[in-house]
């Protein structure tokens, strides 16, 4: 449940880099902790953000979690489907349940992101 081609944060976000375009979402572990997702608050497109800025939140009926940006840059696109189908995060957190795309100012090293192996170890330590 930890795809090897993604990068991860300690707040349980994942990032997929495609050149400078970074797609992000929350990990399998994060959605499992929250339970059935009922609402997703997404950032406004074109917003400029620093790494680890709070950019939105994910709610279930009994819990809520802030979402932090894994990278610095500018938000280029948000996943509008989540407005009416928040359950996509439970069903497909790494594909259909992505949260937003960011034009990133740097790569995984710039922002100290973990690779899959490191994240797996981090989860075990938790």
């Amino acid at each position: 449940m930890i795809p090897s081609d993604l990068w991860y944060t300690k707040e349980h976000e994942w990032v997929r880099f495609d050149g400078q375009s970074a797609t992000m979402g929350i990990t399998h572990h994060a959605q499992e902790q929250l339970g059935e997702i009922t609402f997703v608050e997404l950032p406004a497109p074109a917003r400029r953000i620093k790494a680890m800025d709070p950019i939105g939140s994910v709610e279930s009926s009994k819990a809520a979690s802030e979402v932090y940006s894994p990278v610095a840059g500018e938000i280029t696109e948000v996943n509008g489907r989540l407005e009416s189908e928040p359950e996509l995060i439970n069903q497909s957190c790494y594909q259909d349940g992505w949260l937003c795309k960011i034009q990133a100012q740097g790569g995984p090293e710039t922002f100290g992101l973990m690779n899959a192996g490191q994240y797996e170890q981090y989860l075990q330590e938790q």
């Binding site: 009922t38 609402f39 709610e59 279930s60 009926s61 009994k62 819990a63 809520a64 802030e66």
Partner: peptide, 14 residues
């Protein structure tokens, strides 16, 4: 009781 994720017992200082 619904939309409880707004409330203090879940969100605490937020």
């Amino acid at each position: 009781l619904t939309l409880q994720a707004r409330e203090q017992h879940i969100r605490r200082d937020k």
